[in-house]
């Protein structure tokens, strides 16, 4: 029938077909890409975490054969083993790693807030024409390599490093401090690497705050310190939450910082997973480690998302 249609109509059909192809491609290309390269790999991790390890290439027994059909799948599901998960609870290395990752991330987040808040506050109060430059200066380190920024601290923190040289020269200490390969080096590394993540949301929040509120408080006889705690601090809560989550979430799974700056006693789960995978070659256990790590991170991620959604509502 298509042949009998007037040529103009056919042209219109082609155009509208092309239009919908353009729209559909825009949606489906990235969608398919993420299904293949994000969702499917993630399901593979989940599947592997319930498989038995094996001395083979690749080193695991398949927990599920997709070609078996629904009945076969059910049989496969019955063979799922939680042995990898029970193994995690038995070996102290794992729960200690989880605990110490959360602890290290928590302490580092607090330290980052302690340094980041005065910085963001100072930036927000800077003369208006200076602010874009200051903002650029916060963002610039964010573009330079993470690995290089962590590496830069090794020369500073080690025993014969620049910090010890400086402190001895200044007469503050007589014996060099041992910072490198301790948890303190890891805290410093995390604070340094993630400081821009803390400062940016805080600055965005503090800059928007209404200065007249503080003037009103001062007029009514409120001291500057108590005005800060009663007005500025409560108002900056969304910024504080966003900043803390942006530091805490990646810090928990951090690998580069503990392996370059931390010592052998610095347990962090990212590093444990990496070693489990590359040194012990136990893929099923490392998958189980990954799944538990995600479960731990879900709570802070939900908190973050909730505070973001609230901020968006208030902004609208």
């Amino acid at each position: 029938m298509g042949v009998l249609l007037p040529p103009r109509r056919a042209g219109v059909d082609i155009v509208s077909a092309l239009q919908s192809i353009f729209k559909r491609a825009t949606i489906w290309l990235p969608y398919l890409w993420l299904i293949v390269f994000f969702l499917a790999p993630f399901l593979l991790v989940a599947k592997l975490s319930v498989s038995e390890p094996a001395i083979a290439q690749p080193p695991y027994l398949p927990a599920m054969n997709w070609l078996d059909g629904p009945i076969g799948w059910w049989c496969d599901i019955k063979t799922f083993s939680i042995s990898n998960y029970t193994f995690l609870t038995q070996d102290a290395l794992y729960w200690k790693s989880y605990l110490s990752s959360v602890q290290i991330a928590f302490i580092s987040t607090l330290l980052t807030l302690l340094i980041g808040f005065p910085l963001a506050y100072g930036m927000a109060r800077a003369p208006r024409n200076l602010r874009p430059l200051l903002l650029m200066l916060v963002i610039l380190p964010f573009w330079t390599s993470f690995l290089i920024r962590v590496y830069a601290w090794i020369g500073i923190l080690k025993k014969e490093g620049l910090l010890n040289q400086f402190l001895i020269w200044a007469g503050v200490i007589s014996e060099p401090l041992t910072i490198m390969n301790t948890n303190w080096a890891v805290y410093i590394g995390i604070v340094y690497s993630y400081l821009p993540f803390m400062v940016l949301p805080l600055y965005a929040n503090l800059e928007k705050q209404d200065g007249t509120l503080l003037e009103a408080a001062a007029d009514l006889g409120c001291s500057k310190v108590s005005a800060f705690w009663q007005i500025t601090w409560p108002l900056s809560r969304p910024g504080v939450i966003a900043g803390c989550m942006l530091v805490f979430i990646p810090a928990v799974g951090e690998f580069v910082i503990p392996s370059l700056l931390g010592g052998s006693s610095t347990l962090m789960i990212g590093r444990t997973l990496f070693d489990e995978f590359f040194q012990n070659r136990d893929w099923p256990v490392s998958s189980a480690v990954a799944i538990i790590l995600l479960l731990i991170l879900i709570i802070p991620i939900m908190l973050f998302q909730k505070s973001e959604a609230r901020a968006r509502e208030q902004g609208a």
Binding site: I115, G122, R125, A126, L137, P141, G155, G211
Partner: peptide, 28 residues
């Protein structure tokens, strides 16, 4: 916020940027 820029504010900005930039400068 358009309040005066106190010396505390200036000090925290200067120290904050020193912390951000000195390690990279030393490396260079």
């Amino acid at each position: 916020m358009t309040r005066q820029w106190t010396s505390f504010n200036i000090a925290s900005v200067v120290l904050g940027f020193a912390f951000l930039y000195i390690p990279i400068l030393l490396l260079i």
